[in-house]
Design a protein around this nucleic acid. Structure first.
Length: 804
DNA sequence: AGCACGCCGACT
DNA sequence: GTCGGCGTGCTC
């Protein structure tokens, strides 16, 4: 009896979101296993798919097709990850194929190529003009050369054939190695013999001799460099059988030329000791337990992580360390590489696709025991996990913004349960959700309240910008902040200035008629970009020139509103001309590596002031920074977002941890128009507990998370009425199936109601206990299938980051 | 998602 | 008559 493989095909659509059965050819029966990628015929195409199961019988009535290719020699997805994908589908409403692909480096996603091949004699003219004398070409080429109509005719005459090819992008990098074939003595002889006629070869021979002594081979490139010879010399020597070339698999190593200083475990403070004890107990007994490690900035959370991982590795297990993308700085990597060396794999968005693939392979082959990485590293293919750490667990970047909308924290906890290992959620400002779970003893709360070295937390001064305005200061810098900056420059100390850009953009407005330039496709004003001298839409990418006159009243009094980093920099230099400023924002850090370069320059003392957006709030541990200024603490507070207070508190606490890590006590200046706001006041007091209590009270009153679970349902259509009608229909369908306590907010148009010429409507469900809700939502999505063709879209986002 | 199949209007 | 427009339904 031939075996049958159940395959999830690479077609992200509702109708194909189920397994398809295929025959396994006898020759592959021993090879094909669940978790492997295969190539299968699907309709008239050939596509990639994942084997999720192998069975004896099929329920399919017609003749099964057979698998036509295997793309892996061993499964790329373990039983565990296949199992996890089932739960992911239920939780995120995404297609199974999307979930499976999210678990692998993007390089393993198939690329498809369509080919046109000649199968019958063409006229000479056709052969030459269309195919340039060859007998096949890619569809892409035909398309770009506008040949499709002509070729369609040939297809009809059966003179050419259309074929499909699945291209596996995943390629291992190979390097050419050199192996000496002579003994030391033979080389010595040959060296003498060719000293005169072939001095280069003699030189290479001496290098080969030293390789022989060290008992290792060299890469061809390295040898050429060392001996300062060309490949021709080596080729010549290979001909004489003095050496041989062979290929070796190599990793693209982004940290190749870096030397990491070895670091040792530091002695723990008594608090750290107290905190690590229960964690190590869980590690030792392979007990699944989720710890919420709440530690003020500088309290040495990282050392606790490092020593926990150290223990895990000693037990022969592996560890995942998740950090938010922006916190994945070279400093962070250095600390892990310094402690664990080659056993660390690093995964972040700065790596090329190939580099990511190689890091993944290192993990898969068991060469790496520890992975440090951003969100998707939670899927690292470890077989025997000993601990999963989610640092800065409150960070919103742990939730993927598009399908599959998974939350890395949830995945970490799932995997922790599967592997019977502890999960550590670490933060100075835990999310309310996690902190509340610790309250209910779902998580074990561990606290670090003291900074190592007994450093004082910096003094935080709050400046009411309304007073500054009254005093006639219309600049972005309060007088006292200016003075403090001057003082630091005089003392040779450094300042960090943070411009909070959340909920803010620079737009232009006509002062005569009040006209604001908006996007023609979206319901939003265009943002001014000084670097390109254009107005851009951040939603659809529309771009146009900066108008000289008002398009509405043709007046010439156009004013720029909002404060971009460029503008602030100009202003700063006009107030303090002697300041040397490094500006960090999306514009100056777009190039690869620019981020690190700017930070390194600042660390070297090449500037007095680092001016930037949120991206500088994290991981800046330079001892010479003694002053941090937050230029606009409250931009988020104006937004209709129930997490605005939490986000503001987190940001201010974050930056308050920055200054004064050296011997000097640091200072923080917070400029705001809302000095009374509890988030700002309590951040000043460094009082998380009171903030938590107050915010929980507000959440309770407003029936928000963590008291309620939430789901955001969105509909969209080119026609506003269709989108509105659909959301209304959805609500009518759901409402009778829900309990009385469940609250339905809306329907309302989204706060940006029109994006890319589509209108968006939404509603929010707030509920405490709805065991059937997810099934109902899956049904709604299912029954909305027919309308997709009409351009009517429906999306479901469980636990959205914001309601906007 | 693609692609074939099928049914209507506009043309050599 | 037939070419090609797009709506419909299927892919093991």
């Amino acid at each position: 009896m031939p075996k049958i493989a159940q395959v999830i095909v690479d077609v992200p659509a509702m109708q194909t979101d189920r397994p398809f059965d295929y025959l396994i050819p006898a020759s592959w029966e021993a090879i094909i296993a669940p978790g492997m990628r295969v190539e299968v015929p699907f309709g008239s195409r050939q596509i990639q798919g994942f084997v999720i199961n192998i069975v004896e019988k099929t329920a399919f009535q017609d003749q099964l097709k057979a698998i036509i290719g295997v793309m892996d020699l061993a499964p790329v997805l373990s039983t565990e990850l296949l199992l996890l994908s089932n739960d992911m589908v239920k939780q995120t409403f995404a297609f199974k194929i999307s979930c499976l692909q999210a678990m692998l480096p993007s390089m393993m996603r198939a690329k498809y190529e369509k080919h046109l091949t000649v199968i019958d004699e063409l006229t000479e003219a056709e052969q030459f003009e269309l195919f340039k004398g060859k007998d096949s070409m890619t569809w892409k080429e035909a398309e770009s050369r506008n040949l499709l109509p002509l070729l369609a005719k040939l297809k009809k005459e059966d003179k050419i054939e259309i074929s499909y090819e699945v291209v596996n992008k995943a390629r291992v990098k190979k390097i050419k190695m050199v192996k000496p074939l002579l003994t030391f003595e033979q080389m010595e002889e040959e060296k003498e013999a060719c000293q005169k006629r072939a001095p280069k070869q003699a030189l290479v021979l001496s290098f080969l001799q030293s390789l022989l002594i060290e008992e290792k081979d060299s890469s061809s490139v390295a040898l050429q460099k060392e001996a300062n010879v060309t490949s021709a010399v080596l080729k010549q020597m290979a001909k004489k059988n003095w050496l041989a070339f062979y290929e070796k698999e190599a990793y693209r190593n982004p940290y190749q030329d870096r030397v990491f200083k070895k670091t040792q475990a530091m002695p723990l403070t008594s608090q750290q000791q107290q905190v690590i004890t229960p964690i190590l107990a869980a590690v030792n007994t392979s007990k699944n337990e989720t710890f919420l490690l709440k530690g003020v900035t500088g309290s040495g959370k990282t050392e606790v992580y490092l020593q926990t991982i150290s223990k895990v590795v000693a037990l022969g297990q592996q560890a995942i360390m998740l950090v938010p993308e922006i916190a994945l700085t070279p400093q962070m990597v250095e600390r892990f590489k310094g402690r664990f060396g080659e056993a660390v794999a690093v995964l972040h968005s700065g790596l090329s696709e190939g580099e990511k693939y190689d890091e993944w392979r290192k993990i898969e082959r068991g060469e790496a025991k520890i992975v440090v990485g951003a969100r998707s590293a939670v899927f690292a293919p470890f077989q025997n996990l000993g601990v999963i750490i989610v640092d800065e667990e409150h960070e919103s970047t742990y939730k993927q913004e598009d399908n599959p909308r998974y939350h890395a924290r949830d995945i970490a906890i799932w995997r922790g349960q599967y592997h019977d290992c502890p999960v550590i959620l670490g933060s100075a400002t835990p999310s309310l959700e996690s902190r509340a779970r610790a309250q209910k003893k779902v998580y074990t709360l561990l606290e670090l309240t003291e900074r190592v070295n007994q450093q004082q937390l910096p003094e935080v001064e709050i400046i009411d910008m309304k007073d500054e305005l009254k005093a006639g200061n219309r600049s972005s810098f309060a007088m006292s902040l200016q003075n403090k900056i001057r003082g630091r420059i005089a003392k040779g100390e450094q300042t960090v200035l943070l411009l909070n850009r959340r909920g803010y953009s620079s737009f232009i407005m006509c002062r005569d008629c009040g006209f604001v330039l908006g996007c023609p496709n979206c319901d939003i004003s265009l943002t001014l970009h000084m670097d390109t001298k254009t107005m851009k839409c951040h939603y659809c990418g529309h771009e146009e020139g900066i108008p000289r006159e008002c398009p509405s009243c043709h007046g010439h009094h156009i004013r720029y509103y909002g404060t971009g980093t460029q503008k602030v920099e100009e202003e700063l230099l006009s107030v303090i001309p002697e300041a040397r400023v490094i500006r960090m924002d999306v514009d100056t850090t777009r190039k690869k590596g620019a981020h690190e370069k700017l930070l390194a320059a600042f660390e070297q003392g090449e500037a007095d002031i680092l001016l930037g957006t949120q991206m500088i709030a994290k991981g800046l541990d330079f001892p010479n920074i003694t002053l941090v200024g937050v230029l606009n603490a409250d931009t988020a507070l104006g937004l209709p977002d129930f997490r605005a207070g939490e986000k503001t508190f987190q940001l201010l606490t974050q930056v308050s941890g920055r200054p004064g890590r050296g011997t000097i006590k640091g200072e923080v200046v917070v400029q705001t128009f809302n000095p009374e706001h509890y988030a700002i006041q309590l951040a000043k007091e460094h009082d998380y507990d009171r903030f938590y209590a107050h915010e929980m009270m507000l959440r309770h009153r407003g029936k928000y998370p963590p008291y309620y679970y939430t789901v955001l349902i969105t509909t969209s259509h080119q026609n506003e009425i269709e989108a509105a009608k659909k959301i209304q229909k959805v609500i009518e369908e759901i409402k009778p199936q829900l309990s009385e306590q469940t609250i339905i907010l809306g329907p309302t148009p989204k706060s940006i109601a029109k994006v890319n010429n589509r209108y968006y409507y939404q509603c929010i469900l707030k509920y405490k206990n709805e065991p059937n809700l997810f099934d109902i939502l899956h049904q709604i999505i299912q029954s909305s299938q027919g309308e997709i063709a009409k351009g009517l879209y429906l999306s479901v986002d469980p636990e959205p980051l914001s309601f906007m």
